[in-house]
Amino acid sequence: MAHFVELKQVKKIYQMGEVSIPAVDGIDFEIEKGEFVVIVGPSGAGKTTVLNILGGMDTCTSGEVWVDGRDIGSFKGKELAAYRRDDIGFVFQFYNLVQNLTALENVELALQICKDPLDAEQVLKEVGLEGRKDNFPAQLSGGEQQRTAIARALAKNPKLLLCDEPTGALDYNTGKAILKLLQDTCREKGMTVIVITHNQAIAPMADRVIKIKNGRVSRMERNGAPVSVETIEW
């Protein structure tokens, strides 16, 4: 088995009438299991598209997407949904918690559909929300909500944790705390975490940094000595 995650010449071309707009124009990269990966790039570079494809939310026009030995690039509707539910944990910029459910219930919501879930309360405890588990999202702060979201993603026990600008809607300190949580999760659980951000500053904390520009990987580097997030300032 080669790499845990490997993208080969992945392309996503949107056909708008007669004009073809390539959002992703032949991306190649690979990620090893248990890595903390940061994908950076300016707005519109195609990083979100990559994330969508990687997260099974979208399909690529051509190319191969290998995740844990399976080419999800060839998956369709239901296979993709199964892939999402079993292999992927997703953390949104805007948390996307179900407003009508408490923190605990939001986590449980995800567990409903999993084959091999973790204990919801335990996960909440790990993300530090032990005392807030019965609160509704509206009663939680942004950071708490994002923690809940991370808990929801982690509780599914996924192979891959994808985070789309997880700190985008949070203040500096909270953002740092969330990144810390993600890094810790990676380190402690051996979870492969991919964070998408436009914030170059957090690159040093990653095991691997992939820079995307104009729909191509402009640079990919392995960071031999990732630093702890606490040491990074931006």
Partner: peptide, 8 residues
Amino acid sequence: ALKVLGFF
């Protein structure tokens, strides 16, 4: 969001 979570 539910779909992203993997709901069929």
